[in-house]
Amino acid sequence: MTRAHDLGGRPAGPVPDKDDTVVFHDSWHAKALALNLASGALGAWNIDASRFAREQLKDYATLSYYEKWMAGLANLLVERGLVTEAELSGDVPQSQLTPKALRAADVSAAMHKFMPYTRKNGPTAQFQMGDKVRTLSAPQAGHCRLPAYAAGRVGTVILSHGNHVFPDTNARFQGENPQPLYTVEFTAATLWGAAAENPDDAISLDLWQPYLEPL
């Protein structure tokens, strides 16, 4: 697993186009987003699986943002059996619109619908606000939302969010496996040592209990 997507802390140049207010720069950008949302509404995958599909792209580092969204979508469509490889490369027989498809009239309601990621089941919270915790020494293989820059570091629990769907299993269709989620704050000095701009600045991450160990 290369974690090409795990960019935090890497050296990089100036941030581009800071005052840009254009929502979609090309019609295909808009189309790429809409195709992802409409296909996602079919229910054949979840948000974690769609992120995982993009992270796993061999060309992650060279594809542009919406190119990643299209490539990830195409791979998922095949992986989940909605489209065959033959159909991706050739003509497709025409079929009736499936009842599962998102209809234009339902788009606004679907995008405004409250679909929380909190769950009632799962383990009890092991940590309280104010507790010191240490993160795992490295991100787990597969889809793991612990960034490498914060691995093996000590931080403080500042918010507790209840049990949330666990992306590591959900991304692989191995179940929601809800786990307690916390916001953990790290000092810049803890993360960056002498390279910190200001040792007392703070960086927070939202981390699930399996990423954390008691101190």
Binding site: V92, S95, T98, V107
Partner: peptide, 10 residues
């Protein structure tokens, strides 16, 4: 074509 997406929804 496969009936998975409604073009009006896009």
């Amino acid at each position: 074509q496969k009936g998975l997406v409604d073009p009006a929804a896009l």
